[in-house]
Design a protein around this nucleic acid. Structure first.
Length: 245
DNA sequence: AATGGCCCCAACCGCCGTTTC
DNA sequence: AGAAACGGCGGTTGGGGCCAT
């Protein structure tokens, strides 16, 4: 990008007419060749900026509004396994972008992650999957499964929201408030949790040890090593669907 | 009413891997 | 084969809105 060209490029918030123009040209030319699309459209924006605007805001497939409880759980679990692989996590949440998830994580969980309890879930440490699974199951799943069976997830959600509303809180309030209320998992979540447990158990200990020894220092465990039990080649979406059905 | 803190989210940046020429 | 262009990703910033003090 030469400096002369850069001078003429607009930055900052997008105007409505810019959005309209971008949508028009993406519809016409497709979601590719962003630099040429930016040139052809006459938008005084970089291709990168156009792509970002489309991907994170204008794309009609995007989901709006707050994260659902199920999405929260998925984010938590996948982040515990993969770390800050936002785009990878986003691929498991249709309609959500990596930016959405990144922002959501930062505002909702990062501080809690730094706090004492949550850190235990994230820190696989030398105990690897057992710690994650034990902590998760003991504190969340086991306690809430009963509630889930009694009322069904929708019922719980409604009850939870109603309770929060009565207390003057927003319907889809903070994670830990929800946790303390004992609402953590839908059938979806239970299946994911079971799935994690199942796959974790099935993995050979040799793979686990090998991966941890290669990717982790003594005091600084790389949580991305969670990939030892999950390969990208497997279509996670399909697998989740099978769990759901 | 003013102020500060927090939440939310759009947008940018720099880096890096991939694709194209 | 190598350079340039492109696209994707994760980190960061900044502004608007809301709320408590």
């Amino acid at each position: 990008m030469d400096s002369k060209k850069e001078e003429t490029l607009r930055r900052g918030p997008w105007l409505e007419e810019e959005d309209e123009r971008l949508v028009k040209f993406v519809t016409l030319l497709g979601e590719r060749r962003w630099d040429s699309l930016a040139r052809v459209s006459g938008l005084k924006r970089s291709g990168k900026s156009c792509r970002l605007r489309w991907m994170n805001y204008l794309n009609p497939n995007l989901k709006r509004g707050r994260m659902t409880q199920e999405e929260e759980i998925i984010i938590l679990q996948l982040h515990a396994l993969w770390g800050n692989k936002w785009s990878r996590i986003a691929r498991r949440l249709p309609g959500r972008t990596d930016n959405d998830i990144k922002n959501y994580w930062r505002t909702h969980f990062r501080k809690k992650e730094e706090a004492q309890n949550y850190g235990k879930i994230i820190d696989w440490g030398g105990h690897a999957r057992e710690e994650l699974l034990r902590t998760y199951k003991e504190t969340e799943v086991a306690r809430t499964r009963t509630v889930s069976q009694d009322h069904g997830f929708d019922g719980i959600t409604n009850e939870f929201n109603q309770r929060n509303m009565e207390n003057g809180k927003e319907p889809n309030g903070g994670f830990y408030e929800r946790e303390s209320f004992g609402v953590m998992n839908s059938p979806y979540e239970n299946r994911i949790s079971d799935w994690i447990s199942e796959i974790s158990t099935d993995q050979s200990e040799a793979n686990l040890l090998e991966d941890h020894s290669s990717s982790s220092s003594e005091n600084n465990i790389n949580i991305n090593s969670g990939s030892w039990w999950f390969q990208e080649t497997r279509d996670f979406g399909e697998f989740l669907c099978s769990l759901w059905s």
